[in-house]
Design a protein around this nucleic acid. Sequence first.
DNA 1: TTGTATGCGTTATCAC
DNA 2: GTGATAACGCATACAA
Lengths: 330, 330
Amino acid sequence: MITIQDVAKAAGVSVATVSRVLNNHPSVSEKTREKVQRTIDQLNYQPNLLGRNLRRSETKMILVLLQNIANPFYSKIVKGMEDVGYKNGYHIMICNTDSDPIKENAYLKLLKNRLVDGVVFMAPVISDEELTEISKNYCVVQCCEYKEFADVSSVSIDNEAAAYKATQHLISQGHRRIGLINGNSGIISESQREKGYKRALQEAGIEIDSQLIMYDSYGYRGGQRAAKYFLSIDKRPTAIFAVSDIIAIGAIKEIKEKGLSVPKDMAVVGFDDTGIASMYDPPLTTVAQPRYDLGRVTMEIMLERIRNNEAESKRVFLEHSLIIRESTVG
Amino acid sequence: MITIQDVAKAAGVSVATVSRVLNNHPSVSEKTREKVQRTIDQLNYQPNLLGRNLRRSETKMILVLLQNIANPFYSKIVKGMEDVGYKNGYHIMICNTDSDPIKENAYLKLLKNRLVDGVVFMAPVISDEELTEISKNYCVVQCCEYKEFADVSSVSIDNEAAAYKATQHLISQGHRRIGLINGNSGIISESQREKGYKRALQEAGIEIDSQLIMYDSYGYRGGQRAAKYFLSIDKRPTAIFAVSDIIAIGAIKEIKEKGLSVPKDMAVVGFDDTGIASMYDPPLTTVAQPRYDLGRVTMEIMLERIRNNEAESKRVFLEHSLIIRESTVG
DNA sequence: TTGTATGCGTTATCAC
DNA sequence: GTGATAACGCATACAA
C-alpha cells in the first residue's frame, strides 16, 4: 500500500508538504504543488482515511436509525439526507432497529465508538431522558417521529393539522360516521393524528364514538382486520381515515372483497403518499409529507450542529398537503 | 474523552493489559481481568475504534452499491446482508448510485480509502474489465445483477429459467400471443429473461413476433405505455409478461382503464414478488426471488473472501419460484 | 514556503 | 501473565 511517506520520498519533499497539497493548504508554492500532484497521480496514491479520521477525530459519516428500510415511506427521506450529505462530503449509514432497543443500543455504539459523527433517529425507542443525555455529548437530530420531552432537534410535519385536514375532507364529502385506523406502536404521530381526527369531528359537531377508533399494526393485514371489524358493526362507518397508505390499502382490499365499492360505500383516506397510493385501484386520497425535504432539512440541521456544537435544539415543521384522489370522491 | 491510557492508569495496569481485556485475550489472569473490567465500567470507557481501525487496517464495514434504495425490491435483500453482517460484527453502508458512473466512482473511493472492507455491487455500471481489476485488490461481490465477463463472484437467480417458467405458465393457460415488457437499462437480467421468454415460445411452437416485445424504463409509467401500445396493435396479445411487478401493475392499470378485465381479457405476470404484488387488485402472478437469501449468501461470500483473500470467484444461483395469483388465472 | 517532530488511540511484538 | 514500546497513516504546531 502506498502511503504519504512514499509520495514524499518520490517527490523529494516532506510528508507535511504532501499533506498540505492533499488538503489544499494555501501555503504551498505552485511549483511544489504541481510536482507533488504529479507524483500522487503517477503513484496512483489514495490517502488512507483511517489515519486522517484518527488524527482529526471525525469520520464524515452519519448514522440513520430507522425501524426498517423496507418501509417505502423512508426511501425519499433517506435520499434527501444523502444528497445533502454528499454535497458536504458526508456519507450516511442506514441501520434497521426493528424497534428493538437492544439493536438500537448496539448501533448507538457506532456513535460512542466515534465511528460516526452524528445520528439521526427516525423512530427512537430509547427514552426521552436518555435521548437528551446522548444529545449532550453527541450530535443528534430526530426526523418525522420524535420524543416530545427530549431536548433534541426534530424535523417533521404537523401531524395533528394533517389528520385534521384529512378528516375534514371526509366530513366535507358528507360523511358523519368516520372510522379511524391508528397504529399501535406508541410513536408520537399516532396520538397527534388521533387528536386532529377528533378535533375535526368535534368542530363539525360530530360525537366521537370510541367504537370507530381501531388500533392495529402498520401493514396490510392490520388494515384488513380493521376494515373487517368496521364492516361488521351495527352502525358501520361510511368513511375511514387510516394513518398509513398500506393500512388504507388493506382496508380497501377487504371492502372490495365484501363486494362493496370504494368510495361509494366506503371512502378511504391514507397517509404518506407512498408510491402505491397513486398506483392503486382506486387511487388513494392521502396526506403527502414532503419526504425529500424532511430528509434534506434534517441533514442540514445535523451539519449545522456538527459545525457548531452549541447550537440550540429546535423543532421544525414542514408543510404537508392533502392529495385528493378517487378513493374519497366519486 | 476517556482513552485506554486513562483506564490503564486508573486500574494500575499497562495499556497492553487493558487492550487484552478489551479483546478477550486469554492470557490475562482472572483477577486482573475483573479489576480492569470494573475500571472500564466505572469510567464508562468506550474504546475509540478509529484507533483500532487504523492499527488493524480494517473497518468491519461493507459498502453496498445499488441503483436506488427506493426500489422495494432491495429492502429484503439488504436485510439479509445486514443480518449476516451484524452477526459477524460487520456493518453495511448503502449508497445509491442512480446508475451514475460518477457517483459510483465517488463511492468506490470509500473502498480505496480503506473506509470499507469490501463492496457489494447490485447493479454495476462500471465495465467488466474495471470490475475485475478492482476485485484483484479489494473484496467485491455482485448481487442479483452481474457483469457476465467480470471475474468477480456473484449471487443471483437463474433469470433465463425464471422467465421461461413464467412464459410457460401463460402458454399453459392457453395463450399464444404473449407480449413481453422488458427493461431498457442494459443489465444482464434483461437479456436473460428475454432469452427465457423466447425459449418457452419456441418450444411451444409459437413464432416470435418482435411486435410483441417492448422495452421501456422500469416503472409504472413504462408499464402503462407498453400496455397502451399492446392494446392498440392489430393482433393484440392476450397475455403480458413484464420483467418487474411495477411495470406489470402499470400495465394492469392501463388495461383496466380501457374497460378490459385482468385476467379475462389480458393476463399479466410480473417479476420479483414485491409487497405490492399480493396487495394489488387483482393480486399479481409473479416470479419470487429469494430476496433475503440473496442478501444473506452475498454477505457470506463477502466475509469468506475477506477472511481468505485467495478465494476463487464463483457464480451462485439460488432457487426462484413462480407464484400464481389471480392476474393470470380466473 | 518547507521540514521536523509529535500525537491521535489502539494493537501487537517482544521482552521479562 | 504482564509491561514497555513501536508501529498504523495522517495532520499540524512549531521551527527554520
